[in-house]
């Protein structure tokens, strides 16, 4: 147990998984309560397209993932706000468009690059020093924004129109929230990968939602579940020599099903 902690890659993996678990589980609460699950899932594919472009043109993959996912959430958010297109439809378009770009960029690579697939399926044990820096900086930005605008986010999540009517800058804060979701996805890309990243955002919060009627408790439960499964996933991955993305998602899904079984809201699951 302690011998594994002496490896530098393992220390990095654990620190990264704590930050990722924390950020994802907090953002997840907003995603669940505002029904933004689909937009998040679409954005993770955009982030992956950014990663593949990064490898193709020899730029930092995570920076391009930031760029791609920000463009996606902003355009999708803008289209749905202007009433041009239903949110689901525009996310659906971006979902496949960005995946097509990813396939294209991979096809354009002259050599097979195994690292790219790390971003698709996750491999937290390979987090590098520079990945770590990006995770720390973006994690700090997201958590600070949540802290600074917590009461406004709470209000627009409860009822955006009422918030707007009472003078809260709801449009602006909604875009900020989409931005935070995009950054959170990028932070988690390396750990659980583009395909599974959304489990780490949605599942802890969905489990917490089963267990309480208080917003503050929902955040606390979500954080405990999120960090627990993110760290637990790393240990399982190390011990069983399995991909970290898979172990993390299986771990958190198990907690979710337990929380449904023990939920005081049983029978209301359909409402999320």
């Amino acid at each position: 147990m302690f011998e594994m902690l002496s490896y530098e890659f393992m220390q990095r993996a654990l620190i990264a998984s704590v930050i990722i678990g924390l950020v994802c589980s907090i953002i997840g609460v907003f995603v669940i309560l505002r029904n933004l699950t689909f937009i998040g899932a679409g954005t993770s594919h955009a982030a992956f397209a950014g990663v593949t472009l990064g490898y193709l043109i020899n730029q930092n993959p995570l920076s391009l993932a930031v760029l791609f996912s920000l463009i996606t959430v902003w355009v999708v958010g803008f289209l749905s706000r202007r009433g041009h297109l239903k949110l689901d439809a525009s996310v659906g378009i971006f979902y496949s468009l960005t995946m097509a770009l990813a396939v294209l960029f991979i096809g354009l690579m002259k050599v097979y690059n195994a690292e790219v697939y790390g971003y698709l399926f996750g491999s937290i044990l390979s987090v590098t020093q520079s990945d770590m820096l990006i995770i720390l900086v973006l994690g700090f930005i997201v958590l600070s924004l949540v802290y600074l605008f917590f009461k406004e986010f709470h209000f627009i999540t409860f009822d955006e129109e009422m918030a707007k009517a009472s003078g809260i800058a709801a449009d602006w804060l909604s875009f900020l929230m989409l931005t935070m979701i995009a950054l959170t996805i990028v932070i988690s890309l390396k750990s659980v990968g583009a395909i599974l990243v959304f489990a780490l955002i949605v599942t802890p919060a969905a489990a917490a939602y089963q267990l309480t009627y208080s917003m503050i408790r929902m955040f606390s439960y979500s954080i405990v579940i999120g960090i627990g499964s993110s760290v637990g996933g790393v240990f399982l991955s190390y011990w069983l020599d399995l991909p970290s993305g898979a172990t993390t998602v299986l771990f958190v899904s198990a907690i979710f099903f337990l929380s449904v079984i023990f939920s005081p809201k049983r029978g209301r699951l359909t409402s999320i």
Binding site: H154, D159, T212
Partner: peptide, 10 residues
């Protein structure tokens, strides 16, 4: 009716 009865808020 615009308010979700399950929303965690006191």
């Amino acid at each position: 009716g615009q308010i979700d009865p399950n929303f965690p808020v006191t």
